[in-house]
């Protein structure tokens, strides 16, 4: 795919993000688009947000669980960039009016205390470089109509990242079993689903190592202080005005978030 088209689609996704109006799937229009092309489109989309004043403050890993991979027909994760305009903290109410078709997923977030430069990074290096982990929600959103995404669409769309909410209880992965820690997700006071760290690539640390190595191939390091969202441990939860979600990670703590307003779709 030539640079002109990459720029065009990146701009289209940026416009969709700003206007909250979803666009037709890219793959429907460009059947030969590769995953590599899609990451270049993502780069353009993100560059537009940075040009408009945001900063890159971390990364997210997507498509980490088997059901999502089966759905997308890919057998490796993908990634996107976390931007300063996406951040919420526990207790905040998220305004759905800024999103198109949001769904929540419960995850473990890693905050790094040392740089990690792939390739050659193992899960052990990830634990070594981790300052702490937090329970968190990622609110995914798609700039593609009705979530009709294939892997190329979601990669181009910054891995469908919307906003995210970090919990406040910090855990040390040397004390907490991040692989076997249970994940309990409640919606409006009722149990919605349960999961466990191992749902993410056998362990969330494996997913973070995968991303360190994938980015390493592109010459991009993880920097100390970055936030890495390691991938969903729950089912996707559609959210509407008034909903309240709580996720609790066994041995760690909870993250609570409320939603108000109406999303575009």
């Amino acid at each position: 795919m030539n640079d002109e088209k990459i720029q065009q689609y990146g701009d289209e996704l940026y416009e969709a993000f700003v206007s909250r109006r979803a666009i037709r799937p890219l793959l429907e229009r460009e059947p030969d688009i590769t995953i590599e092309d899609a990451y270049k489109i993502q780069e353009r989309f993100v560059a537009r947000r940075v040009a408009a004043g945001e900063r890159i403050i971390g990364k997210k890993i997507g498509a980490t669980s088997k059901p999502v991979q089966d759905f997308l027909g890919v057998y490796q994760p993908d990634f996107g960039m976390l931007l300063s305009g996406m951040v919420y903290t526990e207790g905040d109410t998220i305004d759905l009016g800024q999103l198109i078709q949001p769904k929540a997923e419960a995850e473990l977030a890693f905050v790094l205390k040392a740089d990690l430069q792939g390739p050659g990074i193992t899960a052990m290096d990830v634990i070594r470089a981790t300052d702490y982990v937090l329970p968190c929600f990622e609110i995914v959103d798609s700039r593609i109509t009705d979530w009709k995404i294939k892997i190329q669409d979601t990669v181009a769309d910054n891995a469908s990242c919307g906003v995210y909410v970090l919990g406040k209880t910090k855990g040390d992965p040397r004390k907490l079993d991040i692989t076997l820690a249970g994940m309990v997700l409640e919606k409006n006071g009722e149990l919605f689903s349960t999961g466990v760290g191992a749902a993410v690539q056998g362990s969330p640390a494996n997913a973070v190592a995968w991303l360190a190595n994938t980015l390493g191939e592109l010459g991009i390091p993880f920097k100390a202080g970055e936030v890495i969202l390691s991938g969903s441990q729950s089912a996707l939860v559609p959210v509407v005005d008034g909903d309240e979600l709580v996720c609790t990670v066994g041995g760690l703590g909870s993250c609570r978030v409320k939603f108000s307003g109406r999303s575009a779709a």
Partner: peptide, 27 residues
């Protein structure tokens, strides 16, 4: 223990086949 949030993984022949947390049992 927090008996509500215990994570569980079942492996069959070295592969994870099912997972959950203990709240799945009546909360």
């Amino acid at each position: 223990l927090d008996l509500r949030t215990l994570g569980v993984v079942m492996e069959k022949n070295g592969e994870i086949v099912t997972m959950g947390a203990s709240a799945a049992v009546l909360g």
